[in-house]
Design a protein around this nucleic acid. Sequence first.
DNA 1: ATAATACTGAATAGAGTGTTCGATAGCATA
DNA 2: TATGCTATCGAACACTCTATTCAGTATTAT
Lengths: 188, 188
Amino acid sequence: MKKTMDRRQRKSREAIFKAFIALLSEKNVNKITVEDIITRADVGRATFYAHFETKDFLLKELCEELFCHIFDSVDNNHSHRHIFECDAPDSVFLHLFTHLKKNDNNILELLSCQNNDLFLQYFKSGLYRLIESQHQLYKYSEKAKLPTDFWTNHIASTFVETVRWWINEKLQKSPEEINDYFLRAINA
Amino acid sequence: MKKTMDRRQRKSREAIFKAFIALLSEKNVNKITVEDIITRADVGRATFYAHFETKDFLLKELCEELFCHIFDSVDNNHSHRHIFECDAPDSVFLHLFTHLKKNDNNILELLSCQNNDLFLQYFKSGLYRLIESQHQLYKYSEKAKLPTDFWTNHIASTFVETVRWWINEKLQKSPEEINDYFLRAINA
DNA sequence: ATAATACTGAATAGAGTGTTCGATAGCATA
DNA sequence: TATGCTATCGAACACTCTATTCAGTATTAT
């Protein structure tokens, strides 16, 4: 989203996103029509198509906006730690759990709605890239003689499944506890 | 599927399944139309709706037909082992990997096509029930103080992800090797 | 104030869904 | 082989949804 965006554009775009998110927690993504969205968002039909080529593009852009924040914040945090030489190997995940619980952008609504698989998959692909860069995680995989990409995928999916379980439990556990579960599961 | 099914019904049903499977490996499930299916299957429109209420039902019944075999075979094998008191704790998974590689019903085509998430998720839900009944798997979870349902989900998803990785690698590894990877990953 | 541009609202063509029905052909049974 | 039963055909139908268009209106940046 460009900074120099017409206020009207921003408003329409935001209204569409907001309506779409609300609808996503109400019904299956395949059953949501453009009519539903524009009625809820209170914008004209032509406006919708001026912003998004199709519903699929809307979904894709929504995912990008949602997850760019969370991964950016990790990247910043990680580079800080690098600068200060404060090496806490697995705290990246604690950082992610904490960030999730803060629930910026109502990300939790989407990760717990009936369409959550959609978002968990998208989240996982972002995670995969992040994990690849965390070399200290691979000590165990070497010990267990597991291929690198197998291990990367294993960690990413275990993280996502931990989040899924956590959300199902209504986030009763603290980020520290759930991070502990996660680390025990991957036995790091 | 009832045994006493009219030959015409069987033929139509099979033709529809076959056409659907072929289409699934060509394009996204959402883009497949009833028109596509009946043209490929060479049956009338009314025939399709006589067999399946909607496309979603077709998909559901396809999944059931596909996975019932594989889980039934495990159940039989498991109860045999029970009778003969031959207790090989984790061989259920080796049995599953072996069964998958045999590729009955072209199950692998579906697990490796672009719609594989659909089938892997369905496969996982079947697995979940199976794992719940395998009590010997929970020794480690008790040691690591992890909740039962967390652990069940962890094993199920790790299995599914192992299968996913295996298929991506074109099934080059033997069932024994891949079972080994899986057991190392869950550290059982 | 002005020019640029985003939005509206209604109309439109086209694709896909799910149903209907009389006619036809295949099936099980006797 | 003749019988009734039932699955299929194929075409037509109403319906919903998609995606585009365009003239008129409102808002914005400068």
